[in-house]
Design a protein around this nucleic acid. Structure first.
Length: 460
RNA sequence: GCCAGGAUGGCCGAACGGUAAGGCGCACGCCUGGAAAGCGUGUUCCCUUUCGGGAUUCUGGGUUCAAAUCCCAGUCCUGGCGCCA
């Protein structure tokens, strides 16, 4: 969240930020008004309390001196003050709670070079990589969901049967590919200096608030036990929507040493998202599902270093696609497409050549976002109480957090199944992954299992 | 799951109804030829231009003129017992 002081002193900057994002429904003037009323009550209460403290310590003295009469008079005065105080402080607390609630719903202020715009079409392309010497794949390359089902690699029907729509099975070599990708990414990032953690999958409400998922975005998350419409408290658990939540909150309410920084963690975890209303041709297959794997990169840095680190973090995520030989591009997100907590975000979009979509390169296919790399500055740190102690300062300051997906697994699988597709309908395993698949060079598919395959004429 | 003990500043740790000792670390200053030692000041948050004030002993309630201290509920930690992949 933004600090009260910042909002108080820079209301215009906050308003401009909201406009750039296209965020409606946040009334900065109302927040300023709340703040002012709260401060007035607070100082009134403080004065009363000061008087009560003076009277109260006098009671102690009088009692010690044995002056019961004077002590009794002071006790009566103290009781009066107590009643007044309760009244004032209750009103102040209500205002403060309201102020806090409003502030939690204000998104981060975008950095100066974030372009204006409403959505993905307004994002700025920064660079394109891997397109100079592309591989020869079939002219009529087939979408991953078709070839995946034909080769018995993806099973949507059985996933839906077992867990519901939006869940699927990876079978045989596809499952193997998924595991290989995870191990491969972990190794790449380890070389880049990342310390690995394996986080808990459920997270509590306080963690979800720390990184900015709550209170605004309850509908995106899976809640354990209760319905999402019920009020939640700190004990409620949610299924991790991204390891960003668990890893960023790992040091919540702690003070890190400046020697610890920059701190780079990577974490593999499954991620769960409800994705309400996200269905259609663009999300067919495994492009957007309720559960997916991801290796997440989380950085904790000193405030002065976060801009530089953002660039490096983008390169660290790109490295995965470079080594896999997959063409991609990097975009700078416009104000309207950035997430709530971010001050600046780059997306990395891999090229999936099979489905020609409006949002894709001229030569066909589509862009698939595989990584979103963001600088949150102190926005999450302030919510989560993440601080560090600069060497030459006496008091602790909020540090800056950044994160990026070390690329989301299923979409990389889509790109591999399409870009590495061969004329004979098989899929070549990218060289970088072969050491993780015991040298396997090609995915040829599997025989179907079950009676239904006989009816479909695929088995005798 | 049961029983017992515990949670105090960046860290350690005292006070156990009368308004948060002390130590360590760190920063700055004094001292010094330079350092060490020593001495002094500072080292949570909020309000306040300043002066200053308020809050804060795990969290939330309660008793009291007054709660770190007493009572209730909860969270987490430690130990013992039990159960368990």
């Amino acid at each position: 969240m933004l600090s009260r002081q910042f909002v108080r002193e820079n209301p215009d900057v906050v308003r401009e930020g909201l406009a750039l994002r296209g965020t409606d429904g946040i009334d900065v003037d109302e927040i300023l008004d709340l703040d002012e009323r709260w401060r007035a009550l607070k100082s009134e209460g403080d004065d009363l309390r000061q008087e009560r403290n003076e009277v109260s310590s006098k009671i102690g003295e009088l009692k010690r001196e044995g002056d019961e009469e004077a002590a009794q008079a002071a006790i009566e005065r103290s009781q009066e003050l107590k009643a007044e105080l309760e009244e004032i402080e209750q009103r102040a607390d209500e205002l403060e709670a309201e102020l806090e609630t409003r502030l939690l719903e204000v998104p981060n202020v975008p950095q100066d070079d974030v372009p204006p715009g409403d959505g993905e079409l307004d994002n700025e392309e920064v660079r394109r990589c891997g397109f100079d010497d592309t591989r020869a794949f079939p002219e009529d390359v087939r979408p991953h969901y078709d070839i995946g089902e034909d080769l018995e690699l993806l099973d949507f029907e059985r996933g839906a049967k077992v867990a519901g729509g939006g869940f699927y099975f990876l079978k045989g070599d596809a499952a193997r590919l998924e595991h290989a990708l995870i191990q491969f990414m972990r190794d790449v990032h380890r070389e880049q200096g990342y310390d690995e953690v394996f986080p808990p999958v459920p997270v509590n409400s306080e963690s979800m608030t720390g990184t900015g998922q709550l209170p605004k975005f309850t509908e995106d998350a899976y809640r354990v036990g209760e319905s999402n419409d019920e009020p939640y408290d700190d004990d409620d658990l949610w299924l991790c929507p991204t390891a960003e939540v668990s890893v960023t909150n790992m040091y919540r309410d702690e003070i890190l040493l400046s020697d610890d920084l920059p701190l780079k963690h990577q974490a593999y975890s499954p991620n769960f998202r409800r994705e309400a209303g996200e269905h259609g041709t663009e999300t067919r297959g495994i492009v957007r599902s309720h559960q997916f794997n991801k290796v997440e990169l989380v950085n904790f840095v000193e405030p002065d270093d976060s801009d530089e680190r953002l660039k490096e973090l983008v390169s660290e995520a790109e490295e995965v696609l470079d080594r896999l030989g997959l063409p991609y591009r990097v975009t700078l997100l416009c104000g309207g497409d950035m997430t709530f907590a971010s001050a600046k975000t780059y997306d990395i979009e891999v090229w999936a050549p099979a489905d020609d979509m409006e949002y894709g390169p001229e030569r066909g296919g589509r862009w698939l976002e595989v990584s979103s790399v963001s600088n949150f500055e102190a926005f999450q740190a302030r919510r989560a109480g993440l601080r560090y102690r600069p060497e030459r300062h006496e008091s602790a300051e909020y540090l800056h957090t950044l994160n990026g997906s070390g690329t989301a697994l299923p979409r990389v699988v889509v790109a591999i199944m399409e870009y590495y597709q061969n004329d004979d309908g098989t899929i070549t395993v990218p060289e970088a992954l072969r050491p993780y698949m015991n040298g396997q060079e090609r995915i040829e598919g599997h025989d179907p299992v079950g009676e239904s395959a006989v009816g479909a004429g695929r088995k005798e």
